[in-house]
Amino acid sequence: MLQYDFMVNAFAATFIVAVVAGSIGYFMVLRGQTFAGHAMSHVGFAGATGAVLIGLSPLTGLTFFTLLAGLGIGLMGERAQSRDIAIGIVLSLSLGLGLLFLHFYTSFAGQATALLFGNVLGVARDTLWIMLVMGALALVILAVIARPLTFASLQPELAEAKGISPKILGTIFMMLVALAVAESVQVVGVLLVFSLMVAPPATAMLLARRISTGIALAVLFALAQAWIGLVLAYYTNWPTTFWITLLGAVAYLAANGVVHLTQNMR
């Protein structure tokens, strides 16, 4: 299995994505913003198509636009319900803009759409380096804001009284999500990123008492999901993403079961 470059690259790429998605995803689940992650992956399309129209690279457009969306969502929504609305509005606006940009195309828009179909089995060696750098950057930013972000997520009024701005933190975090999503989606695809951002942290939260162990578990579960999924895909030839999402669901259900059993045994 490992004599194939594409498999080695796949393991490496999913390692990076698992670490980033697992840790950022933990905060997304904590803050109830998994919808935002999903929305971000679709927003990039408008940026990619718009960029090509004005002669820029689709990747530049995708990154810039996703960051802009992150900024918009962060600034707009503070309370839980307005976040949902904010995300919904930004998402539908972006999709609409994407349609508008496509309307102005007089030729085939393959270049922009190609960007969105990442495939974990199609990762090139030099892409890995870029992913590593971006992933490290994302983790550094996360490490700096982690504690205030947790505080602001759990007790926003108190955090505000202490001089921490939940709105600014929320916006920085949303832009971080945007960056992480934009960079990984075009490498490994929408579904894979999203499944590693939701199920592993949710499972970790069921089992861990503390924030730090929660994040560690989330990353561990994400990694296990991704790597076991890859191995299963290799030997069954069924789609990689299917296995990874299946493992995620199974892990979550299993953790749920464990929690219920231990509660009943007390």
Partner: peptide, 27 residues
């Protein structure tokens, strides 16, 4: 502050909540 429902289902212990507010008050 007034009762916040975020704390309803929290598996975090009170002690960890307190540590979080101390370390979370600065970057």
């Amino acid at each position: 502050p007034q009762f916040g429902k975020q704390l309803n289902q929290l598996s975090l212990s009170g002690r960890d909540l307190l540590i979080g507010s101390v370390t979370g008050s600065r970057y």
